[in-house]
Design a protein around this nucleic acid. Structure first.
Lengths: 369, 369
DNA sequence: TTGTAGGCGTTATCAC
DNA sequence: GTGATAACGCCTACAA
């Protein structure tokens, strides 16, 4: 026997209070963690049954006031805290959900995570951070937590194509909500996303109003619907000539795409504006233009998407579309939990959140070049 | 009885595989989650005891190859996945730890979180995101997860003073590691932090080498040791005249402190440099200086601390001290887990990580004014 | 008002 | 090589 079975025999259980006492272990800090008091210990010390202790704490049935007081005092003395694990096992749910995102150090996802965490915390749920780094194996491992019933649901904002197969198997059986990015083939899902297309339209209208008639559009990867939607909205509202180049949402790709064009003889004839599918790519474009001796916004206007923190700090401050990352995370999570708390799998539903154009210093009226 | 007790009687348990079958529930998506197969279901269907199933899966003891194959096939057919909850209950640990931080949308903490998540994932641990928003109640609620034994340990990077009391009670009894910020009175802890003082020294040397002899130092709140250390290191290495102003690590405070000085008759006589205790305050200072018609770096040099993403994008690009936020998170977590996995409370120990001066466009040789 | 007993799903112990 | 049993710690239906 590895542990003494003192538990239910010793009147005070493991004895010492966990609330008072010395802050540090006395044996040089290498203390093994001691066995904490269980409900049985409390019951024994209070001279009642575990049932009564349970009811005193949960209030699920009336208990004699005297008995209750006695129990509570023992609870304090022993520093008893119910083991949530055991409770979860018996309840069949853990009050924990997962949040799958590709990169927490990206401010967009960090904001989204904040919203998700807030929503989860509001309902007393814990949130497990599943940062995938776009790694499908890692994602699979995290999805496994749902199948092993360690988490009650998952907010999924990863969007890397490899994951689809695994997700499909879960969708409709386990509670999952998609955040920010739709996943093709998973239309039967609960999804919260910003209005990417409207954002594109806002940019198109803005540039058109400034007199621009030809623009370069730097899109995200073809596989991601959000990027497509942004470009579509733009093209629709801009009603001018558009040259598209496909990037990957990273700063380097914005730089490369623009630099290549400039090397090949400059921007297309009459092109006075660049719309990048996100801020990072816009920064890359900014850099490439500056290096080529072009002035922003005097020669070329540049617009981004996302409104990350650096956008307003950059030089010139970037005109961009503000995406409600926090709200996306919060909405997806709140919606998901609405079903999770009832033990249901969420039905297909769509929550589209409004975006906002932030006009800053990187756009100006078109000048003929 | 709420659920049919079909479990151990029906030969196929809950029947249907969780791997195959239609991806969506057929009843309009409002499906309640079904009871998944348990080890008993598998055992019954394979004609063996739960013990054997357990051993087939864990490899903890040899099993007849034929039996094992049969069991594995049933496992697949029923889509059985062991309930990690039950396993945790019996093992006495959950393989989950918490990460307490004030604000995940701050890139510094996001990076730290990434490091923590990586370290946790490496050892098969889950990480619960505890975002406190500097709210002591919220922090308390999260600390409760440790007392209810839902998590095996906590990486603590919050640093808001109100939390100390609660933390003290836990320290030395439960596995906690401090990240980034020391907490006064909790010296007996495991702590990983950047070398704030060395960072300050690097800045001091840099400015001195550029010929600066008088500087304005914008510190963080007095309660936070990291900010103090930065300022101390600076003063020590700069060996010139220093005027200190106390801020709160926010952009607005950097702006306000500098603007006030300028209004009161300009920077102190001969002062040609500003060292802000973090990048955000440096940005505020930058803005105030620009508004006053002073040029950075021609009239005044400005240095920050942290090297957040916006630092290199700002105009001028900010000279700053790069803090290894990722490594801080990763180290704290890895160290913590080293003890957690052995069921021990970590001893006091200190891990100081190197910082690096990033010289950019916001500093230049001093000019006499 | 309170207690007894069974079960949540797993693994360790002991016995065959 | 395999199985029965107990235990992890809690909750709750049922009984008194």
């Amino acid at each position: 026997m590895t542990r003494e079975s003192q538990g239910s025999r010793a009147p005070y259980g493991p004895g010492q209070s966990y609330e008072s006492g010395q802050p540090y272990a006395s044996d040089g800090n290498r203390a093994a963690v001691r066995r904490p008091a269980s409900i049985k210990d409390v019951a024994a010390a209070a001279g009642v049954s575990p049932t009564t202790v349970s009811h005193v704490l949960s209030g699920n049935r009336p208990v004699n006031e005297l008995t209750a007081t006695r129990v509570r005092s023992v609870v304090n003395r022993l520093g008893y805290v119910p083991a949530s694990l055991a409770r979860s096992l018996q309840a069949g749910s853990t009050s924990v959900i997962g949040l799958m995102i590709p990169d927490i150090s990206n401010t967009f996802f960090a904001e989204l995570a904040k919203g998700a965490e807030d929503a989860a915390h509001d309902l007393g749920y814990g949130l497990i951070l599943c940062n995938t780094e776009f790694d499908a194996d890692r994602e699979d491992r995290y999805l496994g937590m749902i199948r092993s019933r360690f988490i009650d649901g998952m907010v999924y904002a990863s969007g890397s194509p490899p994951s689809r197969r695994r997700l499909e198997a879960l969708m409709g059986k386990f509670p999952i909500a998609l955040a920010d990015e739709e996943v093709e083939g998973l239309e039967g899902a609960l999804i919260a996303t910003a209005d990417h297309e409207a954002g594109g339209r806002l940019v198109g209208e803005h540039l058109r109003a400034l007199g621009h008639r030809q623009a370069l559009v730097l899109t995200g990867p073809r596989a991601l619907k959000s990027g497509i939607a942004r470009a579509n909205g733009f093209v629709q509202a801009f009603r001018g000539e558009v040259v598209e180049r496909v990037g990957d949402f990273k700063e380097a790709s914005g730089y490369r795409l623009v630099a290549e064009l400039l090397k090949e003889g400059g921007l297309p004839e009459g092109c006075t504006a660049v719309f990048a599918a996100n801020d990072l790519m816009a920064f890359g474009a900014l850099l490439a233009l500056r290096e080529a001796g072009l002035s922003v916004p005097d020669d070329v206007s540049v617009v981004g998407f996302d409104d990350i923190r650096a956008a307003s700090l950059a030089h010139p401050p970037l005109t961009t579309v503000h995406q409600p990352a926090y709200d996306v995370g919060r909405t997806a999570t709140a919606q998901l939990l609405q079903y999770v708390t009832r033990g249901e799998v969420p039905p297909a539903s769509r929550h589209t959140l409004p975006v906002e154009l932030k006009v800053r210093g990187s756009t100006a009226p078109a000048t003929t070049r």
